[in-house]
Design a protein around this nucleic acid. Structure first.
Lengths: 334, 334
DNA sequence: TTGTACGCGTTATCAC
DNA sequence: GTGATAACGCGTACAA
């Protein structure tokens, strides 16, 4: 550690320039010298200083992934995918957890202006004014870009996800279907519902309710449903946490999930498969999301023509919460 | 973006050195010039180049956290804690997910020699030979240091965790207690069992079995237990995933967790609270682990006398899987 | 094939 | 109080 190109040059008896060329595999170095340089560098454990190199080449070997909450089971997989892809291109991945605090997002943008990182993968919504300072060095992952901003977006097709659920539920022959969701203003709420509507008969859809993306909210919304005079016999919860809450409410009401009420979630977080009645749900390609987002970003940075905004495909994972039931095993439907 | 100290200097009509001093709050700049420089810098959105600064100061504003699997719910919280602490000291956090591949750990060590990062928080076990190249720039978090290596360690007191469980179970008046665990070679397996033994009557402890740290393994070990002629009426599973598996096995055997069999897990991952019978478990201070590890590392880098190896305290979280049961609410016992 | 010279953007050490 | 000037470690025209 602390070995410089100059020291290598000195002991080998050549100039620093030659060492640089040799180590970077550039032409114009005799095979003999090349060998000696290589072995000397290996012996002393030389490794070029990243910052000196960044300074002269203008290329920074860092990317940052900005997430609202890394403890939310959705994001670690995205992070893993992004890191894999970044590593493939010689970059390391910074993690920025905003905890939904706006000043942390500002901090992430500062990383860009101080050139700590070459680009940002934003998995949190950004405001409009912020988009200006970041042209070409940012890609959105799973969230909308600021309006009129030309920031590339990589996302998962929520409407298709809704359709997958609709098709599955329609085939079950249930009589009344309820939709339980997060905030009405969230686009994913709306798109998942729209997809559902695409695939089911009009008169099948009963109550639609909104709340937060939490277990508690699911429990409350479920309680309200089961308390009504004509409770639904099928429920689509727009994420898994809501679904867990609905399942609790069902259990409270003495109803058996999978028999008395069919239940479908969304996201396929780990707990979905471990619930008392394993949850049929829509799996998002989280790893792929991170991977494609990182790739898109790196391409944009390299000045390659930005590929089209990517829309990845979710898939239905059938478990036992709708009554069909191959034991604890999981059957996947593409 | 791309604004340099020189450009600021030119438009303000001073030298680059003065701008540097002014912006860094160093003495020796007149209040008038200082103002003008500050406002000009703000106007052009100047932000110093991190790499140029690193080059000259020798201080690198990056730390790396190395984890075996970021999708394991234990690590995101550690990451969040480490990032918070790093941010407090002006550092950003790199994430390296090894996926248990040794070459990825090597890669992390390369980050150090190329000075991409100032230090490493290792949450994966490292070999002995590797410790040499990293003296003073590494701290272990939740795993043992390589033998005879003087690398600081921050961990959680597994033996105390075992004791907390033992005390709780002993008070329940059950007749036969089984211990279900991960690999016998893992130190945490052994320490948690040792702690358990500290607190329970000798003849209470029945079968001790080992497997992997997974749901499936828990289900298998549980199945074996319930199939025996004298099944236990209490079980301590050495992590939550195992406990979930045991709960499944109990359910398969027609036994009710919390009534027929008391069950305790370990880790307090999210799913523990969401299980069909919310799980009594031992919560590890994951955030704190990351925080303290990062702090220890930064202190070591700054040459401060390395604080003593830290051993954090776990705490018992009582839910419903042992029969005592304040509804779905969670009661915490310090 | 190899060496010299310069610049990347910043901080630090001198003078003045 | 302020301004040259020299590093920091590396890559790269250009000259030899």
């Amino acid at each position: 550690m602390g070995v410089t190109i100059k020291q290598i040059a000195e002991t080998v008896g050549v100039s620093a320039a030659t060492v640089s060329r040799a180590l970077n595999g550039l032409p114009g170095v005799g095979p003999r010298v090349r060998k000696r340089i290589a072995s000397e560098a290996a012996r002393r454990g030389y490794s070029p200083d990243a910052h000196a190199r960044a300074l002269v080449t203008g290329r920074v070997p860092f990317l940052a992934l900005v997430v609202p909450d890394i403890t939310n089971p959705f994001f670690p997989a995205v992070a893993r995918g992004a890191e894999e892809e970044a590593a493939l291109r010689g970059c390391s991945l910074l993690l920025v957890d905003t905890g939904d605090r706006p000043e942390r997002l500002e901090h992430a943008l500062d990383l860009l202006s101080s050139r700590r990182v070459a680009g940002l993968v934003l998995a949190v919504p950004a405001a409009n004014g912020q988009a200006a300072r970041i042209a070409g060095r940012v890609v959105m992952a799973g969230v909308d870009a600021p309006p009129r901003s030309r920031v590339p977006v990589v996302g998962v097709d929520d409407r298709l996800g809704g359709r997958l659920v609709g098709r599955h539920l329609a085939a079950l022959g249930r009589r009344s279907l309820a939709f339980v969701s997060g905030p009405a203003r969230d686009r994913s709420s709306r798109l998942r519902l729209a997809g559902l509507r695409d695939e089911i008969p009009r008169d099948l859809l009963g109550p639609v309710s909104h709340g937060r993306w939490t277990v508690e909210s699911g429990r409350e919304q479920g309680r309200a449903l089961f308390r009504s005079s004509s409770p639904p016999d099928a429920i689509f919860a727009a994420n898994d946490l809501l679904a867990i809450g609905v399942a609790q409410a069902a259990s409270d009401a003495g109803l058996a999930v999978g028999r008395d009420v069919a239940l479908v979630g969304y996201d396929d977080v780990e707990v979905a498969g471990l619930a008392s009645v394993p949850l049929t749900t829509v799996s998002q390609p989280k790893l792929e999301l991170g991977r494609v987002a990182a790739r898109t970003l790196l391409d944009a940075i390299d000045g390659l023509d930005t590929p089209l905004p990517a829309l990845l495909e979710p898939r239905l994972v059938v478990r036992r919460s709708c009554g069909s039931a191959p034991d604890f095993a999981t059957r996947e439907v593409p």
